[in-house]
Every structure is written in C-alpha cells, then in structure tokens.
Amino acid sequence: MKKFWIFLFFCANLANATLTNSIAVVVNKEPITSYDIQQTMKILNLSREQALNVLINEKIEISQIKQFEISVNDLEVDEGIKKMMAQGGMSLEQFRANLKAKGQSYESFRANFRKDLEKRKLYEKIANSNKTDFSEDGAKKFFEQNRNKFVFYANINVNIYSSQDAKILENLKNTKHTKLKAHNVNLNPNNADPRLLALLSQIEIGDFSPVLNSRDGYELYEVKSKSNQQNVEYEQIKNEVLNAYINEQRQNYIQDYFEKLRSKVSIEYLDR
C-alpha cells in the first residue's frame, strides 16, 4: 500500500512538472514554456500578458541576431565590463563582491552583459540600414519644431532605480511597475554631470531616462520635477541638436522595423 501511495505522489508531481514546463506559445518555431512566462512574471513583476510580450520580443530579437549573424566575443565582453567599472571607479574584485552581496554571480552578469551587447549590435545594424538625414537644415528645422526638448534645467528631482540586469529597468520603463526601491535625489550642477542634467532636461516629468551604465551595473532615472529653466539658442548647442535629430530618426526607424516584423511573425498560442 505504501508503494502505491508513493507511486501516486510521483505521478502527481510528474504531471504538475509537465504542466509547468508545457509549451505555451511558439514564435517562428521557437517555443516559450509556461515556466518561462511564470519566471518572467516573477522576476520583472509583470502580468502574464506583459511577460508574454517580453518573451515574444526576445524571440524576435534572437531570430534577427541569428539572421544577421551577429556575435560578441569574450574580448568585447571583457572590455565592455572594464569600461563600465572604470566609469564607476570600481575594481573587478569590488564589482564581484558587490554582485555577490546582491545575490548575483559574476558569471550570470557577464552572460546578460553579452546579450545586451548583441542587442546593441543588432539595433546599430538595423539603424544603419536607414537613410539618415545629417543636414544642418534638417537639424535646424528639428530644433524649431522641438524647442521644448532643448531647455536646460539646473535643478532636477529624480528617483533613481538600480539593477545589475538592464532588462529589469527596460521593463520598468515600459510598464512603470517594479519591486525595486527608488533613491530620491535633487540633482544640480554641484552634484551632477552637466551632460546628465542636459539629458534629463529633455525628459518629461513622470517619464524615464534611457538605461545608463553605473558603478553597480545599470541605472534608470525617473524625472519627478524640474526647476531653474534656462533657454538656449541653436548656435549654442548645434552639435547636441544634430545628435538628437539623428538619434530620433534612428529610434523611430528601429521601432517601425520591429512593429512591421512582429506583424509578419508566426505566433501560435497553444494554451488558450
């Protein structure tokens, strides 16, 4: 009798494991399991639909990385991490210890960093396929149409979110939901790089900065308020305007590229 109950217990657990690991969605013949969805929901604090969208987008990115034969070698990974640590003034030993204190291994961070570099290469390759306008006339027109983007604020109140995983911060930007605790800071020319203030000055109140490298991994800034406004003219910041004009063209092209790509992707839902 005892063996019979053990057998039933084994079958029940096997059935549960099979259900947990069952294939939920197939994207271009690449499977996404129920376990993948549950883990993404847990780690990124997302709803099931949001987690599924993240995983579908990842599969599309991976397929594009394979299609363009994009690769990142060990040297590129090591150099990228060294550059990031140098910006934060940390040694490798300090960085490893910091990761360990936060429950993450260096190997795991390195693997995620490699994926981030692959994605950057992918976006760069896609953006470079667009015919970008580099003209000064185009930049001047962009400046006149977007003067609000080139106002400098000398005092900016922000919430700063930190993580060793850039993907967690990217999803915070998209969903505005997170379990991360924010660090509130009042930034000004005395405690912040003027380039950071210039970047944050262009971000609307309540919105987020791009994910930026930091001494602990990555940071995301949420702009809460801005004050001490200083207007500037085109000739004072024409290089910055041209860079912003080029970046906006590239970002719009990348977004349009993936929207069109997703509309053509074969997505089969198996558990609905």
Score class of each variant (00 low, 15 high):
residue 194 P to L: 15
residue 195 R to I: 12
residue 195 R to V: 12
residue 195 R to E: 13
residue 196 L to P: 07
residue 196 L to T: 10
residue 196 L to C: 08
residue 197 L to F: 05
residue 198 A to L: 09
residue 198 A to T: 14
residue 198 A to M: 11
residue 198 A to K: 12
residue 198 A to S: 14
residue 199 L to T: 00
residue 199 L to V: 01
residue 200 L to Y: 03
residue 200 L to E: 03
residue 200 L to H: 03
residue 200 L to K: 08
residue 202 Q to G: 03
residue 202 Q to A: 08
residue 202 Q to S: 06
residue 203 I to C: 00
residue 203 I to R: 00
residue 203 I to L: 00
residue 203 I to M: 01
residue 204 E to K: 13
residue 204 E to R: 09
residue 204 E to A: 14
residue 204 E to W: 02
residue 204 E to D: 13
residue 204 E to Y: 06
residue 204 E to H: 08
residue 205 I to P: 08
residue 206 G to A: 06
residue 206 G to M: 06
residue 206 G to Q: 03
residue 206 G to E: 02
residue 206 G to I: 04
residue 207 D to R: 13
residue 207 D to F: 09
residue 208 F to D: 03
residue 208 F to A: 02
residue 209 S to R: 01
residue 209 S to E: 00
residue 209 S to T: 00
residue 209 S to H: 00
residue 210 P to A: 11
residue 210 P to H: 11
residue 210 P to I: 07
residue 211 V to R: 01
residue 211 V to L: 02
residue 211 V to Y: 02
residue 211 V to C: 01
residue 212 L to K: 04
residue 212 L to T: 08
residue 212 L to E: 04
residue 213 N to Q: 10
residue 213 N to S: 10
residue 215 R to P: 04
residue 215 R to Y: 10
residue 216 D to F: 10
residue 216 D to C: 01
residue 216 D to W: 07
residue 216 D to R: 11
residue 217 G to R: 08
residue 217 G to I: 03
residue 217 G to W: 08
residue 217 G to A: 07
residue 217 G to T: 07
residue 217 G to M: 09
residue 217 G to L: 04
residue 218 Y to C: 04
residue 218 Y to E: 06
residue 218 Y to M: 07
residue 219 E to D: 15
residue 219 E to C: 15
residue 220 L to C: 12
residue 220 L to Q: 11
residue 220 L to E: 11
residue 220 L to H: 11
residue 220 L to M: 12
residue 221 Y to V: 04
residue 221 Y to T: 07
residue 221 Y to W: 03
residue 221 Y to E: 03
residue 222 E to F: 05
residue 222 E to Y: 04
residue 222 E to N: 15
residue 223 V to W: 07
residue 223 V to E: 09
residue 223 V to Q: 08
residue 223 V to F: 05
residue 224 K to Y: 06
residue 224 K to P: 03
residue 224 K to F: 05
residue 225 S to E: 12
residue 225 S to L: 04
residue 225 S to A: 12
residue 225 S to G: 12
residue 225 S to I: 09
residue 226 K to M: 07
residue 226 K to V: 02
residue 227 S to I: 10
residue 227 S to H: 09
residue 227 S to N: 12
residue 227 S to W: 04
residue 228 N to Q: 12
residue 228 N to I: 07
residue 228 N to A: 10
residue 228 N to T: 08
residue 229 Q to D: 10
residue 230 Q to C: 08
residue 230 Q to K: 15
residue 230 Q to E: 15
residue 231 N to G: 08
residue 231 N to I: 14
residue 231 N to D: 13
residue 231 N to S: 13
residue 231 N to P: 02
residue 233 E to P: 02
residue 233 E to R: 12
residue 234 Y to I: 10
residue 234 Y to T: 10
residue 234 Y to F: 13
residue 234 Y to H: 05
residue 234 Y to C: 06
residue 234 Y to E: 03
residue 235 E to L: 11
residue 235 E to V: 11
residue 235 E to F: 13
residue 235 E to H: 14
residue 236 Q to R: 11
residue 236 Q to F: 09
residue 236 Q to Y: 07
residue 237 I to V: 15
residue 237 I to S: 01
residue 237 I to D: 02
residue 237 I to Q: 02
